[in-house]
């Protein structure tokens, strides 16, 4: 898996499929209010599109796609988005995660809650995507002790 596949059909197919899976993942995240889906499912779909490229390509190519050094920090950023949304409402004088106090101008409470949920879904999606890819990368981490 580290060295990828040599079959051109697999390379081509995975390169064709990956963007559509990613697009569907985005759709699932942002359409989660109206249909089944949400941050976690969309994030897992995004992660599967990246893992598909990771399985099919060589390491040099798939690192251009998504560098594995960014996995954990971006996951932390994703959780921080969630945390920050909650913390803003705490600073505004309410309880933690009380979306009705978010400082968006000109919205009624129900809309504020709508956008609050959307924001945290984006955070969830980012975190789940990066962390699942990071788990995959770390499981494949080659051990240099044995090769030397």
């Amino acid at each position: 898996m580290k060295h990828g596949s040599s079959s051109p059909i697999i390379l081509l197919l995975s390169r064709v499929l990956s963007p559509y899976i990613m697009l569907f993942g985005m759709y699932v995240i942002f359409h989660g209010h109206y249909s089944p889906g949400g941050g976690f499912q969309g994030g897992a779909l995004l992660a599967s599109s990246i893992i598909l490229i990771r399985i099919a390509m060589e390491e040099k190519v798939h690192q251009l796609h998504f560098n594995k050094a960014y996995g954990i920090p971006l996951g932390a950023v994703g959780v921080l988005i969630f945390f920050g949304v909650g913390f803003i409402s705490l600073i505004m004088g309410g309880y933690f995660l009380d979306y009705s106090l978010l400082p968006f101008p000109g919205m009624i409470t129900a809309e504020l809650r709508f956008y609050g949920i959307l924001l945290i879904e984006v955070g969830v999606g980012l975190a789940v995507m990066t962390i699942l890819v990071a788990i995959y990368d770390n499981l494949l981490e080659e051990d240099d002790d044995e090769s030397i």
């Binding site: 209010h33 109206y34 089944p36 949400g38 996951g75 994703g78 959780v79 969830v124 789940v128």
Partner: peptide
Amino acid sequence: DANTPNMVTTVLGDYRAFDTLGEEVVIF
């Protein structure tokens, strides 16, 4: 409350949002 037809999203994202934060922390 939240203008959202999908009740599961509302429960997950608003009423019990702290559980979802915990879930995030678990995956992190």
